[in-house]
Amino acid sequence: LKKVVALYDYMPMNANDLQLRKGDEYFILEESNLPWWRARDKNGQEGYIPSNYVTEAE
């Protein structure tokens, strides 16, 4: 899975979204639905995130 790091905080707009915290790492599960990607956080929560809020992890 592709790993990304959040560049900004993101508060979910609806139940399908995943909250982002700046500096945290996330795994990308699906990239087909631009600009929204399906992601999983370190706690196993899954949801959609804005792809322009993250960058690929080193």
Rank of each mutant, 00 (worst) to 15 (best):
D9M: 03
E31C: 13
L34C: 14
K2M: 08
A15E: 13
D9T: 04
E46M: 06
F27I: 12
V4R: 03
I49W: 01
I49Y: 01
E25D: 06
G47M: 01
W37E: 03
S32T: 12
Y10S: 03
E31H: 11
M11K: 12
M13D: 09
E58D: 14
A6Q: 00
P35C: 15
Y53E: 01
T55N: 06
R21H: 13
N14R: 13
E56P: 13
P35D: 15
G44A: 04
K42N: 08
Q19P: 14
G23N: 05
N33R: 09
K2S: 04
Y53I: 05
K42G: 09
A39H: 00
F27Y: 14
L20A: 01
A39W: 02
L7T: 04
A15F: 10
E56H: 10
N52T: 12
N16L: 11
F27Q: 07
M13V: 15
V5K: 07
G23E: 03
K2C: 07
D17T: 07
N16Y: 12
N33L: 11
F27E: 10
L7F: 04
G44Q: 05
Y10A: 03
Y48H: 05
R38P: 10
L18R: 00
N33H: 12
G44N: 06
I28R: 02
V4H: 03
E25H: 14
E25K: 07
V4C: 06
K42T: 09
A39N: 00
G47E: 00
M13L: 13
D24L: 08
V54N: 01
P35N: 15
E56Y: 13
K3N: 04
K22D: 02
Y26A: 02
Y26T: 00
N43Q: 10
S32V: 08
V4T: 03
N16R: 12
D24Y: 08
D9Q: 03
L34S: 15
L18T: 01
V5N: 04
G47T: 01
Q45T: 11
Y8G: 05
Q19H: 09
P50M: 08
R40C: 11
N14E: 07
N52C: 15
P50Q: 07
S32M: 08
P50N: 12
L1E: 06
L34E: 15
P35G: 15
P50S: 05
D41Y: 02
A15G: 10
Y8C: 15
K2W: 06
V5I: 14
R38D: 03
D17Q: 15
Q19A: 13
K42Q: 11
K3I: 13
N33V: 09
R38V: 10
Q45F: 12
Y8S: 07
A6S: 05
D17G: 15
W37I: 12
N52H: 14
I49R: 00
R21N: 10
G23T: 03
Q19D: 04
K42A: 11
M13P: 07
Y48Q: 07
W37V: 14
L20H: 01
R38Q: 07
E46L: 04
I49G: 01
R40I: 12
Q19F: 07
A6R: 00
Q19S: 08
Y53T: 03
Y10L: 05
G44P: 00
A6E: 01
E30F: 08
Y48F: 12
V54C: 03
W36T: 11
G23L: 03
Y48V: 06
I28H: 00
S32Y: 09
R21I: 15
V5Q: 05
Y26C: 02
L18Y: 01
A39Q: 00
R21E: 06
Y8W: 12
M13G: 09
T55V: 14
